[in-house]
Amino acid sequence: MKAIIVGGGIGGLAAAVALHQRGWRVEVLERAAAFTEVGAGLAIQPNGLRALDALGLGELVRAGGPADPPAGIRRTNGDWLIRNDVDDLKRRFGTWLTVHRAALVDLLRAAVPAQALRPGTDVRHVRPDGTVVHSGGTSSADLVVGADGVHSVTRRSMWPHLPGPRYVGYTAWRLIAPPQPVEGSAETWGRGQRFGHVPMPDGRVYCYLMANAPIGSRVGLEELRERFAHWHDPIPALLNSAQSAAVLQHDTYELPKLPSYVRGNVAVLGDAAHAMTPNLGQGACQALEDAVTLAHAVDTLGVRAGLEAYDRARRPRTQMIVRRSRQAGAAAHWTSTSLTTLRDAVLPLLPNALFERSLTPAYTWTI
């Protein structure tokens, strides 16, 4: 059996690894000239780590050292809005890890035969029968996996009349600051903008920032330093230590619900199927779950029955997480003074169990 994977990011390479391990011939078509990841840090939550375990790669990722779960959410003055019981989260759900996105891509790529990787290949159209039209000609396979991101050609080919991704109203910056001491992983909410920091095993600090902005607007590091100069420590120090070349900015999109993740011999996964806001940090983890579930289903049940099983398993779960992710970050982007004052007064009064229950379905996945 042969599979063509469109897209060589985390989800596409994970699908290639999973299918290759089951004896399938795989071909990974990647538009970029090299298989790499443009990004910064990545938190791998317990469910994502279980997916990597299913690929036999979990221990290699664990070798970098564990990370703590998120400690919670602060106000701009440093007071806690939500304070998580970090030890309880680890006890209940398992291990968290933090890696560089490029390192995870390298790990996945190394588990795929080199001859199966085809960088510099621009996919132009995908047909339900498993035919892929691309810059190098035409290829066909028993299964095509569309893992080509939020602006997926595979998705547009399969469902040309459905709405595409929608801009959610805020843009995001990501960077890695030089090594410096920080107290765990936390996020800070202001009015219409927020800042998060996650320590990495080598001492560097992964930082992400989000702010309400018109689509396509671009803001550099100097303006970010000014915006966040009066927020609590260590936020100003992290931004002051960063280099402009290390800052990546991307607008944030969400994908409306698809009626199916499969058509004919084609499946979509990851952002191509369910692009979501980054508020729960579940984007890459859900792509890894998709890849493992898809490979298991089609190899066990055959392509058509396996694709139906994949859709039944993955569509309700991922669309639920898309919804919860949207809800989780909504209050951070309020701009009304009265609403943010109310938010800052009410959130500390709510029981931690309320927040933990909302996260349980994401963390407890198993294949």
Rank of each mutant, 00 (worst) to 15 (best):
M1D: 12
G56I: 03
P160M: 02
A141P: 12
L280I: 14
Q21I: 09
R74I: 06
V112K: 10
A71S: 07
R31S: 01
D311C: 01
E308N: 10
A297K: 09
T188E: 09
A18N: 03
T171Q: 10
P278V: 08
T171A: 10
E289Q: 02
R166G: 12
P181C: 04
G264K: 08
N47T: 09
T252V: 13
A147N: 02
G329D: 02
T318F: 05
E37F: 07
L301C: 07
P351I: 04
S244W: 06
A18Y: 05
A330R: 15
G94D: 06
V112L: 10
T293G: 00
L117K: 03
P361C: 13
P316H: 01
H197I: 11
G281F: 07
L349N: 05
R50F: 08
L350C: 06
C285D: 13
G65H: 00
R166A: 15
T335Q: 15
W159N: 13
R194H: 14
M320C: 12
I5T: 00
T364L: 14
M276W: 14
G203R: 12
L29S: 06
G48K: 08
V153P: 05
T131N: 02
G283W: 05
R263K: 12
M200I: 12
P113Q: 06
H232M: 07
G64Q: 09
G164Y: 07
N279R: 09
A67P: 05
D271T: 03
V132M: 01
P160H: 09
V268G: 02
D271R: 09
A18D: 09
K2L: 11
V6P: 00
I73R: 08
A272M: 04
H274E: 08
I215T: 15
E223V: 12
S217E: 15
I44S: 03
T98F: 11
L55Q: 08
S338R: 15
T76V: 13
L221N: 11
W159S: 04
Y253K: 14
T366F: 13
V322W: 09
N240C: 13
R25S: 15
P201C: 11
E254G: 13
N265Q: 04
T154M: 03
E308K: 12
L104P: 03
